[in-house]
């Protein structure tokens, strides 16, 4: 198995990413993210939830380096033992983001490539040798249960299957950090629940640090160990809720009274935030 994970033997969870008073605005426009501080430990599954315009997706773009930080610092730790690596405002450090993958809101597949070729894309762009590539693609497709669909084209797949391909493509580089921008928002509830369970099952094996943007409270509680509730205009960290439900979580988790209690709690917090935001 090429997705082997090197676990840090130290007892104290090491930090994967740290936001220090991060501010983001585009040009002279309004402040999108204001004074955002958060430190994510290795293996954290952090759900970002909040009203639209609270800058959840912007935070992911900052982490991905698709957009520079205006003020403050975004700090990555490179390897398990090495010291933290700082990214100063508007500079992107190449090495810090090598172990990072992004799953977009849309499946974002190349329609002219087969499923296997789509999954291989990140490897191709890095000129990974063909023999290694074949094995990695096969492993990634096995993780999302699409081994039999390797030669299909995206248009032949359902919405859920396309999203699975998108996830396989993100996993093929064995990322340390996984950014998911509302990946299941367009899917029906059954498919969404199912993919949530699959995502957690994969996490049991690969242990990335995840940031997951969502609008669904139930999804956030089911997946995350930490839920960040954001307020809008400008986007700020409003509250953090720790989800103490034990992993591995299964469909049975959804029947747990503690689960429902958390869903209620987060929903109420979210409602109070939304009341404030819509003035």
């Amino acid at each position: 198995m090429s997705f082997a994970v090197t676990t840090n033997p130290s007892a104290r969870p090491s930090i994967a990413i740290e936001f220090r008073s991060v501010v983001k605005r585009y040009g002279q426009g309004p402040v999108i993210v204001d004074d955002f501080s958060l430190s994510a430990a290795r293996g954290d599954f952090i759900a970002l939830i909040g009203p639209s315009g609270c800058g959840k997706s912007t935070l992911l773009k900052l982490v991905a380096g698709l957009s520079p930080v205006t003020r403050g610092e975004l700090i990555f730790s490179t390897a398990s033992s090495s010291p933290l690596l700082t990214t100063a405002p508007s500079s992107t450090s190449a090495s810090s983001r090598d172990d990072l993958a992004y799953v977009f809101q849309e499946p974002t597949l190349l329609p002219w490539l087969s499923v296997a070729q789509n999954v291989a894309l990140p490897l191709d762009l890095r000129n990974t040798p063909a023999t290694q590539r074949t094995q990695l693609v096969r492993d990634a497709l096995a993780l999302v249960g699409l081994t039999t669909h390797a030669d299909y084209y995206p248009r032949q797949l359902s919405g859920g299957q396309k999203m699975r391909v998108s996830i396989a493509r993100a996993l093929v580089l064995s990322p340390q950090i996984l950014l998911l921008d509302e990946p299941f928002g367009a899917l029906d509830e059954m498919t969404r629940d199912h993919l949530n369970e699959e995502l957690l099952a994969i996490r049991e094996r690969l242990r990335w640090t995840a940031f997951f943007v969502t609008h669904s409270v139930a999804e956030a509680v089911f997946l995350a160990n930490r839920i960040i509730i954001m307020s809008a205009n400008p986007g700020r960290l409003h509250r953090e809720i720790r989800v103490e439900l034990p992993y591995p979580r299964t469909p049975a988790t959804r029947r747990d009274p503690a689960y429902h209690q958390l869903v209620d709690e987060v929903s109420q917090l979210l409602r109070s935030v939304e009341d404030h935001s819509t003035v």
Partner: peptide
């Protein structure tokens, strides 16, 4: 989104043109 995907995986300008 596809352009962002290519940027994310640090595709060169040449790769972006030829493969996207």
């Amino acid at each position: 989104n596809l352009v962002e995907l290519f940027r994310l995986y640090r595709a060169t300008k040449f790769q972006e043109i030829l493969r996207l």
